[in-house]
Design a protein around this nucleic acid. Structure first.
Lengths: 114, 114
DNA sequence: ATAGAAAGCAACCTCCTGGTTGCTTTTATG
DNA sequence: CATAAAAGCAACCAGGAGGTTGCTTTCTAT
């Protein structure tokens, strides 16, 4: 019931998008900054980063597309804030894979008993 | 003490590589298969997938580069198996980010008390 | 010894990504 | 109101990612 909109992406697709969004050093850096505090403007985020403001903007759009971040316009500024839910989902997925693996090991152990 | 080799990648770098490796539907599919059972040959993995054997090979190399998978040659076959550790590390990272965020929220709440 | 399966190697192609520059629009503020 | 900060828009570019084809090499089994 929480699914946002018309664009129905499969779970696999969505998960891949999310992983891909995090698969970039610059973006991981941004996530780090935003997850550790208050929303920040684009200019603010670009400040340290050796990149252009526009480059940072693009990265933010990618993160936004994956749901890791959301933007709120405030006057002439555009503030970006962290959104924890997707990472929680990701954690759940990782757990699932881990469990699947552990189960497989168990089943093998029954045979081999190494 | 567990760090493997000469190629010293920063944590950030390594994490980004890992996320990037998982940021592809095909690769996620492979991980799914391998995490759920026994090692499989390249040909085997390519079987269902509409992709060429070579394409699959490339994906496997990417996963291997991120440590999610490792290969063992067995005769003329090259078997790829799942390696759980990197995903465990990833999980730890996600927890860290989540905690950071929760802490930040707490600190804000002290002020705003909305 | 030879045929066939499994995989490696290498060249090639297309399209997306990450980045840039330059200009315009919006919104504060002296 | 004029100026400057913040951001948007659009075009462009180089390089890497994902994929293919074609050929060679390495094993195994008959």
């Amino acid at each position: 019931m929480s699914r946002t909109a018309l664009k129905r992406r499969s779970d696999l697709e969505e998960r891949a998008t999310l992983f891909a969004a995090l698969g970039d050093e610059t973006r991981l850096g941004i996530v780090g900054k935003l997850s550790g505090g208050a929303p920040q403007s684009i200019a603010r985020l670009a400040e340290g980063s050796a990149l252009t403001r526009q480059a940072v903007t693009k990265h933010l759009r990618v993160l936004e597309g994956a749901g890791v971040v959301h933007s709120v316009k405030s006057g002439r500024e555009n503030l970006f804030a962290f959104r924890p839910q997707p990472l929680k989902d990701l954690r759940a997925y990782l757990d699932q894979v881990s469990n699947q693996w552990d189960d497989a090991l168990m089943r093998l152990k029954d045979f081999v008993e190494k």
